[in-house]
Simulated scan of single mutants.
Amino acid sequence: MDPVTHGLVGLAVASVSEEPILGAVSIGTTLAAMLPDLDIVMQCKGHLSYLKNHRGISHSILFLIGISLLIAGILTFIFPNTPFLKVLVWTIAGGLSHSLLDVLNSYGAKLLWPMRQKRYSGELLLSFDPVIIGLSLYMVFLNPSNSRIVTLKAGLIFLGYLLLRWMLKMNIYKEIFYQFGQKITIKNIKLLPAMTSIHKLHFILETKEKFIVGQVNILNKKFRIQRELEKTQIPIYEQVLHSIVGEFFHKFTPIYHLDIQDKGDYYYVIFTDLRFFIKNEFMYHATAILSKDLKTIEGIFHPYSFHQRVSII
């Protein structure tokens, strides 16, 4: 989610607290709901450092509790009439709203760091979701009296929206088997929110021979294939996966394609993250040049566009 959405959700959380809209609680929830994205400071060290750390430590429950203690301590000093424990509880709630929303979209977050390094992802919400923004504005501006009815309505609409998206997603799973299952043997299906359209899903079908990538309209069930990527079937495939670049890319994304080209004196390998497709291009790639004995000569990460180049080794 973008910082503006997170801030609005933080204010929406505060609207439930029965505290003034411009007080210690609202400031605490809003700050806690936005601060996890301060990991953008890692961009100072380059795209690679940022993407390695984005939605990592700063999005974990442990970090959120720690930063909430700090925020609550400062705000209680500034607003001595508001109890510390009350500010702390609502500030933690604001911080958790950030990680919850990020877990519900495609990129996910390391919620249980440092116990688990896994990036959890529910793959239901868009990064910029108009429904979440609308619900937040509804609670902030139409809940001046801290009405429990308004809060209950907003909560039910949010849960209903998640349930609806999940049900539509399950329906598309069935439709994929109906439209593609008799023509190809499907090994795996990945359905993600489309980058820019609330009524579409990004799909990735894996077969033994290739990946099929495209978009589907969840309302009329119309499929549009954007790419068909043949799998490389050569003996060195597993060794390439365990190269420096291969291990890096495997940690970066759970689903990707390898194109291995034999150039005579060396192997040229292109890794493509299949999750994000916008403006007729995949967002993340990496390239590797491997010697004939499979030692890595060069490794380059390409964030956002194939034209961007960041050295991995």
Rank of each mutant, 00 (worst) to 15 (best):
P235M: 06
L159A: 14
R224Q: 13
I289M: 08
K210H: 10
H47S: 13
N146G: 15
L124T: 12
W90E: 09
T91V: 13
S305F: 08
R275M: 10
L112A: 14
P114E: 06
A33K: 09
S15K: 01
A14H: 03
L156Y: 05
N220V: 14
L192Q: 09
Q43H: 14
I71G: 02
V213Q: 04
L241E: 12
V240H: 05
F180T: 08
K208R: 09
Q233I: 11
L48Y: 10
I204P: 06
F282L: 10
F79C: 07
H257Y: 01
I27H: 00
T287F: 00
L22A: 05
I278R: 13
V150Y: 04
K169P: 07
S68L: 10
L152G: 10
L31F: 12
S136C: 04
L51Q: 05
F277V: 05
S127D: 02
N280M: 08
D37T: 11
V16M: 12
F77P: 00
V9L: 13
G122C: 11
K200R: 00
F77S: 08
V89K: 06
L69E: 01
L125G: 00
Y161V: 06
T272R: 05
Y173C: 08
Y267N: 02
F277S: 03
I40H: 10
F79V: 09
T82R: 05
P144L: 05
I312G: 03
A32S: 15
L48A: 09
N188V: 00
T207R: 10
K153G: 00
G95C: 12
D37Q: 05
Y237K: 15
A93V: 14
N53T: 07
F282T: 12
L126F: 00
Q117A: 11
G214K: 06
N188G: 00
L163G: 15
E206L: 08
Q308C: 08
A72N: 07
K174C: 04
Y173R: 13
E19L: 02
G299R: 01
N81Q: 14
K86R: 15
I218L: 02
N143C: 08
R119A: 01
L22E: 04
S121G: 11
H59L: 12
S311T: 14
G160C: 05
E123L: 10
Q43F: 11
G160Q: 06
V4E: 07
Y256C: 02
A14S: 15
R148M: 12
T76Y: 00
I244K: 02
I78A: 12
T253H: 04
F180K: 08
W90F: 15
A14Q: 02
L152W: 07
F63W: 13
P254H: 11
H307L: 11
M1G: 12
P130Y: 00
P20F: 06
Q239S: 13
I92W: 13
S243A: 02
S291M: 03
L48D: 07
T5S: 15
I312E: 00
H47K: 15
N280W: 06
K183N: 14
S127V: 11
L142E: 06
A24T: 01
K231M: 07
F223S: 09
G108E: 10
L229A: 02
S26T: 10
E206D: 08
P114K: 09
H199E: 05
L62Q: 05
L35H: 06
I244Y: 04
I260T: 01
K45D: 12
L290K: 04
G56C: 07
